[in-house]
């Protein structure tokens, strides 16, 4: 990480006495000013009865200065039309995910059927199935969105997020399951072949080396490694799927294996880069 010149801290101090602390995490003045404003907005829009605003501001700034992602500090991340709650231990929804989810919703909107089933594996906060459900529920009378994750914390958070769709959304349509895709027998509903219209997944896809080299510091230090690097999979399973050379592809191999049984009409997978895409899809 390059060193920041002291003059930058002086100029930050002139914006606000809190700004130099934020600068530690933001690394430049424009984004410091912007984040300071967002934190202040957050405090005014979510009033607290117990803590005075200046203490909350100081507290949140301190958290952010430690490098905690802004999304964890504020507890939310806007995603399409929704505001997804975020919490430590669950991956933060990314803008790339947001943009392709909205694109997928557009594509699905033109499907000439009355019912639709979407399944998202490694769902995390549940942002993908929730946004698809929110965009499509007016169009499809019977719409089912499923999210699957192995982490209990993620499933709990996803269910919390489902509640913001209103009582209807929480009651029917969106369901979250805690299951491992490597042993799906427990916890996963049986999908008959051909029932799934869209299968999406944003699985952990970063290799060990890339995790050490090319991830941002706040990702490395504060986001769950489980959602980023697929190195918790037993070596025997990796070998059985034929991914010894590239263990970061193991989730894709498993998902494609599942697809042979489920026969989804469409599959959408997020990958790291062109190289990985070549290995997964060709």
């Amino acid at each position: 990480m390059p060193r920041l010149p002291p003059s930058l801290f002086w100029r930050a101090h002139q914006i606000s006495p809190h700004a130099p602390n934020l600068l530690l995490a933001c690394r430049d003045l424009p984004s410091t000013a912007l984040e300071l404003r967002w934190i202040k907005d957050h405090i005014t829009t979510t009033p607290s009865t117990t803590t005075p605003p200046f203490l909350r501001l100081a507290h949140l700034i301190r958290l952010r200065a430690r490098g905690l992602p802004l999304q964890y500090v504020l507890g939310t991340q806007p995603f399409g039309t929704l505001t997804i709650r975020c919490r430590r231990g669950v991956l933060i929804p990314r803008p790339e995910t947001e943009s392709y989810t909205l694109e997928l919703a557009d594509v699905l909107f033109r499907t000439p059927t009355r019912s639709l089933t979407v399944v998202d594996l490694c769902t995390g906060t549940g942002c993908i199935p929730l946004q698809l459900f929110a965009s499509l529920r007016a169009r499809f009378p019977s719409l089912a969105a499923h999210g699957v994750d192995v982490a209990p914390g993620a499933v709990a958070l996803a269910r919390e997020n489902a509640r913001q769709l209103g009582p209807l959304g929480a009651a029917q349509g969106v369901t979250f399951h805690r299951a491992s895709i490597f042993s799906p027998a427990a916890g996963l509903p049986p999908f008959p072949a051909g029932e799934i219209d869209l299968l999406t997944a944003n699985p952990p896809y970063i290799s060990r080396g890339a995790f050490a080299r090319s991830t941002a510091r706040s990702v490395r230090n504060h986001e769950p490694r489980l959602a980023l690097v697929p190195d918790g999979v037993p070596a025997s399973v990796v070998a059985a799927l034929g991914c010894e050379a590239f263990p970061e592809d193991v989730f894709y191999a498993r998902i494609l294996e599942l697809c042979r049984g489920w026969r989804p009409k469409r599959v959408f997978l997020e990958v790291a880069d062109g190289e990985q895409a070549g290995r997964v899809f060709l």
Partner: peptide, 13 residues
């Protein structure tokens, strides 16, 4: 520029 997706979590709106 650089790697995106899961690699970074900066708010880029």
């Amino acid at each position: 520029r650089g790697a995106g997706g899961q690699h970074v979590n900066k708010t880029e709106s």
